[in-house]
Design a binder for these strands. Structure first.
Length: 358
DNA sequence: TATGCGTGGGG
DNA sequence: TCCCCAAGCAT
């Protein structure tokens, strides 16, 4: 009774208890007690982690964050990095436009903001790769400005708390209104991270742990038994399947024939194997021209990979290429300069198939 | 406003 | 084996 009268929808000790546990596995986070002791988060680390966390899980981001901050400890270091180094370090993380915008943003911060992230939501919003969510996250977490974060977690928590049945993305404005109403003036950074943790670990998409939820008392969906069905979402389109061919050519000295993909579009700016266009399986197969003259042999196995919006099947050809041969597509990268980890996952799958075949 | 854009893990 | 989903952004 008393609990309801106090409105437990807030940054309670119970909510902070969960938040504190998660801080240990997130190297970018300053735990609440350290923050109260005066320690403030490094805006560079907050920004970097938030960009990496876009549509990506904490477990996946952790190692990438550690490698990036070890190699480029400050935004100035990152701004000076070579494009290929940053793209290679990002390889495997996906959504590669984030890495291209990461570099643009770092260079803009150095060139236009004296190497310091601006403590201003509307200014942050103008930087490359920083949208409404990330601007609010940096504002609140790094600068303790009271901006409401609305990510997938908060959308779900708000939809359930208020039993909102309007499907996403139409419900976003309403959910944002609810999120703003709950965002406190005191410690908005701790609150933002705590409410996202709540969504990630308790108010989960499937079988939410309502029994241990700090907000179980005021939750309307919990009371009405609708929590597991929320938020509603508009149905998605089915994924088509495309086909293509890649060519893995290697010289006797171990150099691989690779290309840097165009800046725009799928896997933009990433290293990859030369090959054909990727066309829908309902279309006639594309003509494939090998990137260099050699005895190309097709592998028995094919690469299967699923992107956000289509399935892909790749035929793989391999060949030893004579040292005197000039490629008409791509360039040779010496063995000493090539790390398989610099490849996006689909390209790494092709390499692994070729290695298995040898 | 709708679409393009990665990847890995869980149910 | 599939589908769903994750601390979204750009165009």
């Amino acid at each position: 009774m008393r609990e309801k009268a106090q409105n437990p929808v807030t940054l309670s000790d119970e909510l902070l208890g969960w938040y504190d546990i998660h801080a240990r596995i997130m190297p970018w986070r300053v735990p609440p007690q350290n923050r109260r002791a005066g320690q403030t988060p490094d805006p560079y680390r907050v920004w970097l982690s938030e960009v990496m966390l876009q549509q990506t899980t904490v477990v996946t981001v952790r190692d990438y964050f550690e490698r990036f901050t070890a190699r480029w400890p400050t935004v100035t270091d990152l701004a000076r990095a070579r494009d290929a180094d940053v793209m290679g370090e990002w390889a495997g993380l996906g959504y590669y436009a984030r890495a291209r915008n990461l570099l643009k943003c770092a260079r803009a911060v150095v060139a236009d903001h004296d190497g310091a992230f601006p403590a201003d939501h509307s200014v942050l919003l103008k930087l490359p790769g920083i949208g409404p969510y990330t601007a609010a996250a940096i504002s609140s977490i790094a600068f303790d400005l009271p901006h409401a974060v609305l990510d997938g977690n908060v959308e779900r928590v708000m939809a359930r708390l208020h039993d909102i049945h309007t499907p996403l993305p139409d419900a976003k404005p309403l959910l944002m209104t609810q999120a703003e109403a709950l965002t406190p003036q005191q410690r908005p950074g701790d609150y933002a991270q705590a409410v996202m943790d709540l969504g990630a670990t308790i108010c989960t998409p499937k079988s939410p742990a309502c029994g241990i939820c700090p907000w179980r008392a005021p939750c309307l969906a919990r009371a009405r038994g609708t929590a597991a069905d929320l938020p509603r979402k508009t149905p998605k389109k089915p994924k088509p399947t495309r086909r293509g061919t890649v060519y893995l050519g290697q010289r006797e000295d171990g150099a691989w024939l690779l290309e840097t993909r165009p800046e725009k579009g799928l896997l933009g700016g990433m290293l990859g194997w030369p090959g054909s266009e990727w066309v829908d399986i309902t279309q006639p197969p594309p003509q494939t021209t090998p990137p260099a003259d050699a005895q190309w042999v097709q592998l028995n196995a094919e690469v299967r990979h699923t992107f956000t919006h289509f399935h892909l099947t790749l035929a793989v050809f391999t060949a030893q290429i004579d040292p005197s041969t000039e490629p008409h597509q791509g360039r040779f990268i010496p063995r000493s300069e090539f790390r398989p980890s610099d490849l996006p996952t689909v390209m790494r799958k092709a390499l692994n198939l070729a290695k298995d075949a040898l």
